[in-house]
Amino acid sequence: MITAAHYTVLASGLFCIGLFGVLNARSALRVVVAVELMLNAVNLNLVAYAVTSGARPASALAFVLLLIVIAAAEVGLALALVVALSRRSDITAIDGYATLKG
C-alpha cells in the first residue's frame, strides 16, 4: 500500500536534488530553476499530508494553492532580478556575488 511516507520520501529526494542544484549552480538562473524544484517538493509534502492525515483536507489544499501563488510571485521577482543583474553588470555567475565576504 502506498502511504504518506512514500510521498514524503519522494519529496525529500526531490528537495535534496534541488538543494544540490542550488549549491552547485554556476549561474543565478540555474539557482532559480533549482529553487523551483525545492518548492515543488515542499508542495508535494503538503498535499500528501493533506490527503492522509489532515483534519481539514480542503483547507490544506486551499493553502497549498495560496502557496503556489506566493511562489509564483517569488519566481517572477527572482527572474526579474536575474535579468536586471545580467543587464547591469554582465555577470550572472553566482560566484561573483560575494558581498557577504568580510
Partner: peptide, 15 residues
C-alpha cells in the same frame, strides 16, 4: 520520515 508513525496512514480520497 520512515520512523514517523503518523505517516503510515494510507491515502484517503482527495477532497
Amino acid at each position: 520520515t520512515v520512523d514517523a508513525t503518523e505517516l503510515r496512514a494510507g491515502v484517503r480520497p482527495a477532497p
